[in-house]
Simulated assay, not measured.
Amino acid sequence: MNRLTVVTLGVDDLETSAGFYLQVFDTPPNRDHEDVCFFPLPGCWISLFPLAHLAEDISPSVPKSRGGFSGVTFAHNVKTRDEVVTVIERARAAGAVVVKEPQDTFWGGFSGYFADPDGYHWEVVWGPMFDFTEDGALLFKQG
């Protein structure tokens, strides 16, 4: 089976980002290695790694900085509309910039967006077409 297992975010300050995501996810990270931080979430882990080290690991020719909106967002699906508001408020309290307050979507869901300390954009979203398995994996409802 093919599946996405880890998303690694290149961050400017590992400790700042680790503290931020600890507050947002309300899940303790795995810090077995001092240069990387893992948040084991249902279905996919989030890894934080210093941006310069990540770029160097890929190739010495990869730029060690970013600029502007990359065209990529991350989605954190939740089970209720109220959870959207709760997670957005946790992100705001952790220092996120809320770029779109929670609101009804054109497709029948409810979502909001925040940017983390490194400018990565996250959508926190509830949708009536989504369901979760017992282990937290996201599914489309049948029917």
Rank of each mutant, 00 (worst) to 15 (best):
N30D: 15
S111K: 10
T80S: 15
V87R: 01
F25Q: 08
P102M: 10
R66Y: 06
G112A: 12
P117S: 13
F110C: 05
P28T: 01
G119E: 06
T73Q: 13
A52T: 13
S61H: 11
D57Q: 11
G119P: 03
F25Y: 07
D35H: 11
K79E: 05
G112P: 04
A55M: 15
V84P: 02
V36G: 02
I46A: 01
S111P: 02
K64Y: 05
D35T: 14
F110L: 08
D57R: 13
G119W: 07
D57M: 15
V84N: 07
F38L: 14
V62W: 09
Q103W: 02
D104S: 07
D32P: 01
A91Q: 03
S111D: 07
N30L: 15
F114T: 02
P42R: 13
A94P: 09
V24R: 01
D82V: 05
K64L: 04
P117E: 15
G71Y: 15
A115M: 11
G68Q: 12
G43V: 04
G43T: 09
S47M: 15
H76F: 09
F39L: 04
G43Y: 06
A55D: 12
V78R: 00
P60C: 12
P117N: 14
P50S: 13
V84L: 09
N77D: 05
V72L: 15
R66S: 05
L54Y: 11
V24I: 12
A93N: 14
G119H: 04
P63T: 11
P42I: 08
L54P: 04
A52E: 15
K79I: 07
L48F: 05
G71L: 14
E101W: 09
G95N: 12
G108Y: 01
G109L: 00
I88A: 01
D116Y: 00
T80Y: 11
V85L: 11
G67F: 03
V87F: 03
P117K: 12
R81I: 04
D118N: 15
V98F: 03
L41A: 10
E89G: 12
K64C: 07
P102C: 14
S70D: 14
S65L: 09
I46F: 03
L48S: 02
C44G: 09
P102T: 13
L22N: 06
P28M: 03
F69L: 15
H33S: 11
G67H: 10
K100P: 00
K64E: 09
K64T: 10
C44I: 15
T105F: 01
F106Q: 04
V98H: 02
A91E: 08
G95V: 03
I46D: 00
P60D: 13
E83L: 10
K64F: 02
V78A: 06
V78I: 07
I58Y: 10
D82L: 07
A55Y: 12
F74T: 05
A52F: 12
W45S: 13
I58F: 09
T105S: 06
P29A: 06
G43A: 07
G67T: 04
A96E: 00
K100D: 02
